[in-house]
Every structure is written in structure tokens, then in C-alpha cells.
Design a protein around this nucleic acid. Sequence first.
RNA 1: CGGGACGUAGCCUAGGGGCUAAGGCGUCUGCUUUGGGAGCAGAAGAUCGGAGGUUCAAAUCCUCUCGUCCCGACCA
Length: 507
Amino acid sequence: MPIPKLAQGFEKAGSIARQRYKMAEKITPRETDYSQWYIDIVLNAKLADYSPVKGSMVIRPRGYAIWERIRDEFDRRFKETGHSNAYFPLLIPMSFLQKEAEHVEGFAPELAVVTHGGGEELEEPYCIRPTSETIIWSMYKNWIQSWRDLPLLINQWANVLRWEKRTRLFLRTSEFLWQEGHTAHETEAEAVEETLKMLEVYRDVVERYLCIPVIPGVKSETEKFAGAVRTYTIEAMVQDKKALQAGTSHFLGQNFAKAFDVKYQTREGTLDYVWATSWGVSTRLVGAVIMTHSDDKGLVLPPAIAPEEVVIVPIYKNESKAAVMEYAGKIFSQLKDLGLRVVLDDDDSSSPGWKFAEWEMRGTPVRLEIGPRDMQNGKAVMVRRDNGEKTVIDAAQAGEKVKETLAFIQTSLYEKAKAFRMANTKPVANREELLAFFGAEGMGTADAQGGFAEALWCGSAECEAELKAQTKATLRCMPLDRQENISGTCALCGAPAKHRAIFARNY
RNA sequence: CGGGACGUAGCCUAGGGGCUAAGGCGUCUGCUUUGGGAGCAGAAGAUCGGAGGUUCAAAUCCUCUCGUCCCGACCA
């Protein structure tokens, strides 16, 4: 009897220690368990919750508010570049998927299929869209006759469903929200230009708005979108040094035009297939933001997407309450008038210390602490969420100071993330270095840490597969700006190199 | 889909065949408090994930099932 009890206690020790820590701190430290830390942040900051439906999540108001800010910025940029929003149906006839061979092969394992409707079996089953190329191109066939109908630039905001066996809040769920742009062009050059233009929009918004540095690049044949000629990506590195694909833009060539017979009359009067692109970003970006910036105290948000930029926490005793609240109220109005998103936490039932911890958990970029002492001196205490720095500021300039600080935070989050990525990106020359870098079995050094390995590559899928089998690292992308002066040999097989590529383990 | 861990009140856990399922946090009421997760007093809150079975007796044992997390396989 004592033996099994001991054994059981021993086995459970790890998880109990973790849970003890959690009770005290709520958030598991990153060092202890990075996955658990991420889950703790999402749940405790009330961004999302598990749903009764397997593989699906509920996006809670706070998580959705962040997504709305991301979505609105992208939407603005899409419209600025000439795109219009539309909406296509959720259900797609199975036969549509089958028209593009590579496309159906790629998505078949992830499809959910509707076989019954109105209590009767359907003649042709529908699948729930995993992406909308097929249904959109079935319509484009009717809408495009002449070069005068081109370019056709449409975007849709929608949910999609891909049956996933292993899910992770925001990063990979069966159902998720995204945007998918689908465009049709007269020429190959114009379609390629569009593909790259949207990749650049993605890069700009993700770097400047979400403060996540990314590497724009091209996917290998192995990793490209099913049905694309070429897939471009922006790749980010999160805090455990894994790669996270933050957005993709595909040059589809004439693949879908041919599959759906979409021809147009050219300026010369001949008939030709149109050239296509598609591009998307999803609620995964919310996960990317969390993983990039947050710390052991909770969420850290770039000011641009924070539901509230500033929180004011008043501190008072009963006799000073009225005066402090009035003083805090004035500062609140001052900030509000400057257009800042500000909340005044006047909840009477919790202590200031509690509120500090709570707003840090929620990720609010700036906190103003306002108590009797500050009131006496016409001051306020400003605290930065990203680095914990406290500054005493003049109440009269509170608005300007906060604005300035928010701008600092926005740039310093980006700089910090970029420095981290650079510190964890290494050039590797050969197989031994690659294996050592990823700490492959038998080859690992004590301090092997992973990250981005930049290596020359011959272009063969065999080399990719071999590295993946040995280290789980995959070819994330071939950086667009690092392809000149390729001379040397493939780090894996030693054949003449054709590309410079980033290899990493990924989400 | 394989291996492992877990599922007891809103949250975290105790109890591993036997009387009314125990505690902490949170919630509610009142008083007192408030510059980094306050104090006292009282109260509410659980068909022990679900279904079957074994037993005089099941939160506890057995079978199945559902779900979550971790590790793999698969995968944008």
C-alpha cells in the first residue's frame, strides 16, 4: 500500500508543483512550461474559452475586441488598395473541390462534409469551406467575359473549417475567422505584382501595428498552398524560438481559371485564361501577438490593438475618496478628449494592488495610479506594462505624456522582438551545424537552442524531408531579400546551392 | 489516430469501498479597509464528466464513452 502511494505521488509531483504555482500566480512561468503559459494567458486574460465542440473555441469579448482592431486595420488597407468586400456561401458542392486535382488532394483530409438536409440525404454532399477558391471561381466564370472586367479584386471576411486533430487556442482550431482575398488579372506579371503587393500590406500591418517582425519569403514546393503555383509567406519567431506563419499570399497562375474554365476576351480579341491570386490572414494573428510580447505576469498588447490603451486606478481612503475621484475624473476626461481609449477602474470592491495585477494580466499598455499624494502635488504615477517602468508625471500634461509613452511602447515592442529574433538566427554551413543547431539526437550540444537556421539549399524535397525526420525543423521560407549571390553548397547534401532558406521548428 | 496525465461547487485541490463529500480561492451580505493580489463575521453554491456494471454499500473498483492538456503521427 505505501509503495503504490509513493509511486503515484512521485508521478504527479510535476503537475502538482505546476498547479501550486498556478494557484499562487495564475500564470505558469514560461520557463516551467511554455504551452501551459500560453493557455494560462488566453484563459486568464479572458480572450477565449474552450467550447463544447471539439476543436473549436469561443472567442470572448476581450479576444474579439483585439481581433476587431486587427481586422479593421486590414480592411482599411484592402480598400485602400482597391479591393471590395463580398460574401460567398459556407457550403461548397464536393464536386467543386475535385476540379483542381492538387487542391482537393491537399484539403481532403481536413474536410467536414454535410450529407443531410431537411431530414433527407442530399443528392450531392456539400463540404464546409476550408477555403473558398472553388466556389469563388465558379462565380468568376460568370462574371468575367472581357479584359474590361479585369482586374477583379474581391475580399471576404469569413469563417472556415478544417478538421484538425491537434488544436491550440487561436493558433490552430478547426473553425477560425479569417479574410481571404481572391483576385483575377489579365497578365501573369500583374497577378504576381498583386501577390507581392498584398504580402507587403501584410508585412507592414503585422510589423507596425502588431509589432511582430516578420521575414517575407517564398515557400518551398513541399510547403506551398494546394493549388498554387507559388506561395509567399511572412514568418514570425515567437518566444520559444519556433516559427509561426503569420500570413500567406498565393500566386495561383491559371490553375483555377483552367479548372473552372474562366476565359476572357483579350485586348487583341483572342481568348485567354485569367491569372489569379489569393491571400489570407486569420485569428491566428491574435495568438502570434500573445506569444510574441506577453510575459509571466500576463498579456502584453501593442497599444494599437489594445481594447483600452490606458487604465486609471484611483487610490483613496474613505475620507479622501470624493476628492480623489474628482481629480481622477478630470484626468480621465483629459485623456478621453485627446481621443485615447481610457477606462477608469472605479470598482469599489477590490484593492488597488488587486487592480494593478488584474490590468497587467489583461495587457493594458499604460496604467495611471492616482492617489491622495498625487492629488496634493498635481501629479500622477504612470506605469508601462511592457517594462514595468514607473514615472511620476504632471497631471496637466498627463494626456501628452501618455500618448508619447504609447508610441514608445509600440516601437519598443517591435525592437525587442526583432532583437530576440536576430539573436536566435544563425547561419549554418553544413549538416553537422544544422543538426547541432536543432539539438538532434546524438548530435545535440548542451546548449543547443534552436531558432532560425539560415542555410543554403539545393532545392530538393529530399533534403527537406531528411532534415525534418531528424530534427522536426522544416523549411519556413526563402527570404525575398536574401537570394542574391548564392554561391556554395547545400547544407544538407553538398550539391550546388540554388537558394538561401530559413529552417526552423514551427507551430 | 497511437502513448501518457487528468476530470470532485465558478476556479484550484483533498478524499482511492462504509455515517451528512472536506478545504482554499472566488461569489453574496454586513462592518472595516484601500500607494502591489487586505481583515473579521455570516451565507449561498456539488445529481463527484457521462453511461453501464460489480457490491448490502461506489466519488472510490471494472468496462465503455466524452472532454481537456502533454508527447508523437497527420496537417496550413
